[in-house]
Amino acid sequence: MIQTRTSRAWDDLVKGLASWRLAVSLGRTDISLRYRGSVLGPFWLTLSSLIMVAAMGGIYARLFHMVLRDYLPFLALSLALWQVGLASIIQESCTCFIDAASTIHAMRLPFTLHVIRLLVRNAIVFAHSIVVPIGVFVLYGVWPGLMGLASIPGLLLWLLDGFAACLLLGALCARFRDIPPIVAAFLQIAFYVTPVIWQPSQLGPRSRYLVANPFYDLMELVRAPILGHWPSPAAIVVALALSAIWCALGFLTFVRTRDRLAFWV
């Protein structure tokens, strides 16, 4: 059976998706192993984000002269979205294939299986940390109503981008081992230039340049509907366009590197 590299990569993708059950069970195992032996288990995640939100909320509301009732729901939601949805997926995508090295060397499984496993793992973490913003929303009686559902397409786009991140960064980091720290440093900067702990309105008229920050656009897609307003059309267009490029890059990298991955990890 002679296949081209592209069709082999595509085949890998299809087989990976078809074995989602296995990926889900591997992802769940990862989480339960991470918290094995601790009483709270994955609820440590909830507790740690609770502490983070309480501490940062107190400090920054004072620094920014803001009313907690306005600020805290924003902060709690933004932190949960940023930490799990963006930062953690991007950081973990770097070691997506490296971490699976022993499995990759032992048996033939689709490489994309490890990608789905990573996404499942992060989805579980997300489910635990989203409890905090929900709690804060309830506490202050803020409720997005049905409009909140509009953030679901945004979340799906995040999943897709996360998938592409694994294909792109996972492969590059398997080859070049100094990329993960570079990504970590980059994410640190991105955290401060993206409105996560500060609000776009604080920039005043200059906030219109924010649309050039892809993290802002992605964030808006999910965050805005929950906070009760629509993301700007510009943000939607930029987020979709960049995601398309990002996914194309991810797939092309995967096509070119797939048959090398077993040697690299």
Partner: peptide, 8 residues
């Protein structure tokens, strides 16, 4: 043969 290493 096991499909772990691939070669074009």
């Amino acid at each position: 043969l096991a499909g772990i290493y691939e070669s074009p």
